[in-house]
């Protein structure tokens, strides 16, 4: 089943920049799609189009009506004047869900990202990684069928990133959510995705598509396996090919 379909989608900004051109993309239910590309190739623009935060200037985007979108921005984007649980329950609050249920679901979402006990902490009092996890909890609290993430772990140290990668994979495998994950890291995309979309720049377009056939919950030690190394090599070659175009 296709959640979102893009046909010949292009995006030209008022400034004249052609950010995207001729994008054809099907996002299937339950897949983990990574969008990989160099800086400025239009990854964020593409994700915003998928989310419906921007309109394409050419082509068509069709979305399945019943989808519920969760969006994780590149920065945590928490409201600094609200504590963690109030930040997490914001989407429910905006949807007019009653207070008790908001609190219960937000607490559960915080627990899910390992932040039980930090409900009353303000963003200022949390580390960068914790803030990012609050932001992920906020995206999860609506039980989205489509989770869009824009380089969510880019600003984090490697160890934290690895842990959050594993958490995200476990969540994906456990809930059947569809994930679209923007990154500029080959290693991250190979580790996470079931499919990688490699993008080329100026204008932003799809240069290659790679299916990752590694087992879905990655086995322990996968990061150091020969299989992982081979997949990374293939993806790096695809990316280099895209950048040479």
């Amino acid at each position: 089943m296709t959640l979102v379909a893009l046909d010949g989608v292009g995006k030209r900004f008022a400034s004249g920049t052609e950010a995207l051109a001729g994008i054809d993309l099907r996002i299937g239910a339950g897949e983990f799609l990574a969008i990989l590309g160099p800086s400025g190739c239009g990854k964020s623009t593409l994700l915003r189009l998928i989310a419906g935060l921007a309109e394409p200037s050419s082509g068509r985007i069709t979305r399945q009506a019943s989808r519920q979108v969760g969006f994780v921005f590149q920065e945590a984007t928490l409201l600094p004047w609200s504590d963690a649980i109030t930040n997490v329950r914001l989407p429910l609050r905006l949807a007019g869900i009653d207070r008790a249920e908001q609190e219960a679901r937000a607490a559960a979402a915080l627990d899910q990202v390992g932040l039980r006990g930090f409900e009353r902490a303000y963003p200022r009092e949390l580390s960068g990684g914790m803030r990012m996890r609050v932001s992920i909890a906020r995206a999860l609290v609506t039980r989205p069928s489509l989770l869009l993430m824009d380089e969510p772990f880019a600003a984090l140290d490697e160890l934290t990133r690895h842990r959050l990668n594993d958490d995200l994979l476990a969540l994906w495998a456990g809930s059947g959510v569809t994930v679209v994950f923007v990154t500029h890291s080959v290693f991250e995309s190979v580790y996470l995705a079931s499919r990688i979309l490699v993008m080329a720049t100026r204008p932003g377009r799809v240069a290659a598509e790679l299916a990752m056939e590694a087992p879905a919950p990655r086995p322990t030690g996968f990061r150091t396996s020969a299989e992982y190394a081979a997949l990374c090599r293939a993806t790096t070659e695809a990316l280099e090919g895209a950048m040479a175009q």
Binding site: R48, G52, L53, V69, F73, T77, L90, L94, T142
Partner: peptide
Amino acid sequence: DRNHVELFRLYG
């Protein structure tokens, strides 16, 4: 913040 505004828009 622009991202905050978009967040609010996204959640209707």
